[in-house]
């Protein structure tokens, strides 16, 4: 895992620098009259130092690993399943208001059941339908959460 530390620490360092630069957009003030930019600036500086420490640790571990001749091989950061779940969630977010809760839930979870858990089409259709209608009854009708109805009005 250690080789990832370099990439992660560089991302953190980038965030830290961005925060410091961003902090100067607001009034930093002085220590006896702190402005809105002071606290973000201090945090950015601390994060910068910490990310450099993680980077140093990663570089040293990398050297040790090279000497130990450990092959890590190429591996993917994320799995296909996790990617599909994220896509399903994002799809839900975009479709919810325009299409309404029932249609969106049916569509998104039918896709999920089919492509993530690999169910048969019959199970997919019935499962997604039960989920969409069941959730609508529980949340909208029983718990009184007003869910979007979308263009179709359902």
């Amino acid at each position: 895992m250690r080789e990832d530390d370099r990439a992660c620490s560089l991302i953190l360092l980038g965030i830290a620098l961005a925060a410091c630069l961003g902090a100067f957009q607001y009034e930093v003030g002085t220590f006896n009259n702190p402005g809105p930019g002071l606290f973000p600036l201090v945090l950015g500086a601390v994060l910068g130092v910490l990310s450099l420490m993680i980077l140093a640790g990663g570089v040293m571990a990398k050297r040790a690993a090279v000497q130990g001749a450990q092959a890590t091989g190429g591996r993917s950061i994320y799995s296909k399943e996790a990617l599909y779940v994220v896509l399903a969630l994002i799809g839900f977010g975009f479709l919810l208001v325009p299409l309404g809760f029932i249609v969106t839930t049916f569509a998104v979870f039918a896709a999920m059941l089919r492509f993530v858990t690999g169910q048969k089409w019959a199970v997919v259709v019935i499962g997604a339908l039960v989920l969409a209608l069941g959730a609508y009854v529980v949340f909208d009708m029983l718990l009184g959460v007003p869910l979007p109805r979308g263009v179709l009005g359902i």
Binding site: V85, F109, M112, L131, F139, L147
Partner: peptide, 17 residues
């Protein structure tokens, strides 16, 4: 695999509500 869609939907509706 049966729980996954339920939990996801619960999170989505929960945060929206």
């Amino acid at each position: 695999k049966f729980l996954l869609p339920l939990i996801m939907l619960f999170c989505l509706v929960g945060v929206y509500s």
